[in-house]
Design a protein around this nucleic acid. Structure first.
Lengths: 207, 207
DNA sequence: GGCGGTATCTAAGCAATGTCCAGATCGGAT
DNA sequence: ATCCGATCTGGACATTGCTTAGATACCGCC
């Protein structure tokens, strides 16, 4: 019964809880060296095991990446829930959008892995599929904003549109060519809000 | 002076015009086998040269990809110009958006390479930067739609917002989870238009 | 027309990667 | 105590990006 001691010390017999250690290592590499450095062997190295060890916990490299992406989606959901809790009701949509984009800017490498997995699998990891997903959160927000005066279809479409805008902004706002514009408009967050306010077309003026 | 004959025949002395052949080969592989199969060596193989040959025309693998991406952006611009020329004025914005997304769906692998390059380089390939870019086309469209009643700042912001929406939709609309919704709404194109029409928020109703 | 220079291409090789396999090691159920 | 199955290692293989040394064939120049 030396499991506890082994976990706390240096070299457990069989390692105790690799899988989780691998995920932690992967995220660490991602944040430290970017997505291109995220090789299976590097993850194993970081976790202090042989290059073949991960294959007992993940079928594939892509399965490891999927697990990392899942973790990312959960973090994103946490961020959105916080934004949801602390924003004024009348600017909830903008607040969620800004929170989404700022998450992607704070974790660029992770966001990239998340999205790559989402594309490759043709569907998002489970967390974005269930009843407590961030997507449902957005729908609830929009439903409330409309005061019930909206069909489920329009709700779904509006939520998708919001997601499109947020994701597009997350990727486009990193382009260097918009740096002068950002400054002219008063900083990063002001830029995000401004773009989000122009989604409707040419009519809407700044709030 | 056997250049012409050599170009038409099987094995030119030095190959005639590699670089272009490499680009063609890259696009071919991309469309046939997807982005993960696009290795430098595979491109060289497809073009019938040694694995080291491409290095006399491209400094890097990434430089090859950049050239491919540039070609993609040019094709995209062509598509947008066509849509611009053949759409009704009052639904120009939606038409451009649909054309954008349909291009990305018709060339998924190419679109992915284009966007990867755009992200890695922090700025888009040149073609999207000059005065004849697709981005300027969108701005012109929006300027016309507003009848001159819009500031340059609002114009720029609206163009960016449109781009965000189009890109987001391009990536999100491929998710399998929206398939039932697509059918419920009347097919792919109807789905695209519907989402684009909901960009403004919960107010707008379908046209 | 011959000559050297230069751009282009090949051959061979290096380190790194994803993946598999044979065996070693260890925990836990019987 | 013993065996089983899960976990980990060491070694190997094919493939990849990239480099270097040397071959090949076009070019301008005399």
């Amino acid at each position: 019964m030396k499991t506890q001691a082994a976990l706390a010390e240096s070299k457990p017999y069989h390692h105790g809880d690799l899988r989780r250690a691998l995920l932690r290592a992967a995220v660490a590499i991602l944040e430290r060296e970017g997505p291109s450095a995220l090789s299976l062997r590097a993850v194993a190295r970081e976790a202090g095991v042989s290059p073949a060890a991960p294959y007992h916990h993940f079928k594939d490299k892509s399965e490891l990446l999927n697990a990392v992406a899942l973790e990312g989606f959960e973090r994103l959901k946490t961020v959105l829930v916080e934004a949801f809790a602390s924003a004024r009701k009348d600017e909830m949509r903008s607040a969620l959008g800004v929170a989404y984009v700022e998450f992607s800017q704070a974790n660029p490498a992770l966001y990239r892995v998340m999205w790559d997995c989402a594309r490759n699998g043709e569907k998002l990891p489970e967390s974005s599929h269930d009843k407590h997903s961030a997507f449902e959160l957005v729908k609830d927000t929009l439903r409330e904003a409309a005061g019930g005066q909206i069909s489920e279809l329009d709700l779904e479409l509006t939520a998708i549109a919001s997601w499109c805008a947020a994701h597009g902004l997350a990727e486009i706002s990193t382009f260097a060519q918009f740096k002068p514009l950002k400054e002219a408009v008063g900083g990063d967050r002001a830029f995000l809000k401004a773009v989000l306010n122009h989604l409707g077309g040419v009519h809407r003026t700044a709030s």
